[in-house]
Nucleic acid binder design. Structure first.
Lengths: 138, 138
DNA sequence: ATAAATGCAAAGCATTTGCAACCAT
DNA sequence: ATGGTTGCAAATGCTTTGCATTTAT
């Protein structure tokens, strides 16, 4: 979140960004590591972590943290909302307009200076609820 | 989030709940540990963690996870929203009505079954923005 | 030239867990 | 009685870091 000075374009950094942009799955650092390693067998996990941090501090990617476990990352840093499925654990982007008026609402409450907001929904995703209803047929 | 069977009322569990209810500060597990330890020097951190998990799975408290570091907990499990200050790191409850219509919106998009939603705002809190404007006087 | 970035491995640290003893029901 | 719960300590696992070397600018 703190803007950084100049950040270099390194092969590793580019590879990480490319991997992140190639998926809609909000992967973990380790998944990114495994992917990048396919093209670049000697990258280190440390580099992955350092870059994910740098990139998210620069606003190029989003760091999501749900549950107390590992972070997930999203190359889409535009305002959008997530749905977290409590059955399969997937995180998907919702096709839902961004609601900037929410931030205005907060600024009306008091002297808050709002930079961003985050909205997420928890429940059962379409895929899982389909499976659930089918399991009734047994 | 998964409802549990019967959960016993133990001294430790009661103490943890009491500590959580006594503060508005959304403390970490370790802070809870330190507090409970004042009354009960032999509690173990493991017990704190196990209970925080049990309680949040039972919906009696809320587990908040921001950043990739440690979780924070909130004894107020009713629908409410948070403001996270990027300057001082504080997390405060916002005096803002819950917006159940957001969940309806998602259910209209597709076959989502929404249990809860979470909304948080990031920026500078009133205290910090006051300090910032005063520092201009130097 | 030089400051940033990397690889590697060694921490760091929040959280979890195995197990025997304990206690709420 | 008995199965959930605790204390303790060891273990886990994600993430960070120190350092010598490499690399982008």
């Amino acid at each position: 979140m703190k803007p950084k000075g100049f950040i270099r374009r390194t092969r590793q950094r580019e590879a990480i960004l490319e991997v992140l942009r190639s998926t809609k799955s909000h992967p973990t650092a380790d998944w990114v590591y495994q992917e990048v390693r396919k093209e670049m067998p000697h990258v280190s996990l440390g580099t992955i972590y350092r870059n994910l941090r740098t990139l998210s501090e620069n606003g190029e990617i989003l760091e999501l943290s749900y549950g107390s476990n590992h972070s997930r990352f999203d190359a889409n840093s535009e305002c959008h909302y997530h749905f977290i499925c409590e059955s399969c654990g997937s995180i998907e982007d919702l096709e839902m307009d961004c609601l900037p008026e929410l931030e205005k609402k907060v600024e009306k409450i008091g002297d808050y200076e709002v930079f961003t907001h985050r909205l997420e929904f928890h429940g059962i995703c379409p895929d899982c609820s389909r499976e659930e209803s089918q399991s009734h047929l047994n």
